[in-house]
Simulated scan of single mutants.
Amino acid sequence: MSQKSRELRFAAALVEFTDTLIGDFDTARHLSRLADSSVEFLGARGAGVTLLEGNGLPGPVVHGARQSGSVRELLEREQKSGPVRDSLESGRAARAVHLASREAVALWPEFTSAARRFGIASAYAVPLRRHETLLGALSVYAPRPPSAECGLAIAQSLADATTVGLLNHRAYAQYRQLSGQLREALASRVRIEQAKGMLAERWGTTPDGAFDTLRQYARRNQRPLDQVARAVVHRALTDAQLHPDRSGPA
């Protein structure tokens, strides 16, 4: 792949990770693509994403679709001790460390031992973070010791784009939920006004008087006011049921 082609593919990947304003968005599939793209652009042996749960603890690891079983096992181990654990706790990137070094052995003895058995020479992690909001961390495993250009900046760019996409989708989902609630509230108001008008005309009373009757019936029978109004509009309640002291047509 030429350098220009690689740059174009990287730019397209950044756009893809921010494009989340769709109804059938799937978080796990989105993060799996992030792991696969990290492997592709960083020449890594494997990559995975750990999201934080609502209680602040690490959740299940999301790995790429083509990750080996050994990489999956290592990603699970890293939640207890490893670069991704450090990144989740600090909210900052955990720089690449040569896993044969004394530093790595001292920091993460169990993780380092397992990683070296699986042919991983270095590992690092970057946070999925936007301002003060930390969503998780991306972990990357490289087959070679870290160099001056370990790919940390590229990994962080992918993670940043993904974070923006996830937060945008969260806001979009909240907006859709709120929009639905507002539509239902408006429809409920319309039904109540319609029921008031029907009863006021039928009983020769004021809309306020009809509303008082609706509200009293709802309270006596412990039913939502909108449900009672709907029943009135569909003529599922008789005048005798609504107002036992009033006689009139059903």
Rank of each mutant, 00 (worst) to 15 (best):
R220Q: 12
G204N: 11
V140L: 02
R144A: 12
E110Q: 13
Y124F: 15
A173C: 03
T206Y: 02
R95H: 14
L199Y: 09
G180C: 04
S139M: 04
A200N: 06
Y124G: 04
R102M: 08
A187V: 08
R144D: 11
F118A: 13
G136F: 00
A137G: 02
H131S: 13
L166H: 07
D160K: 03
P145C: 09
E201P: 00
L199Q: 07
A161D: 06
T162R: 04
A115P: 07
A155L: 05
A218F: 08
R129M: 04
S122T: 07
A200I: 10
N221W: 09
R144P: 00
I120T: 05
A115K: 02
A195P: 11
Y141H: 12
T213Q: 13
L167Q: 07
A159N: 05
T206N: 02
Q174M: 11
P109V: 08
V126R: 00
P127V: 01
P143A: 02
A137W: 02
G209K: 10
R215H: 12
A115I: 07
V190K: 14
F111S: 03
E110H: 12
A96M: 09
V140G: 02
R129H: 05
G151Y: 05
L158S: 06
H98T: 11
T163F: 01
M198I: 15
A187R: 15
G197Q: 13
Y124N: 04
R202F: 04
L186M: 10
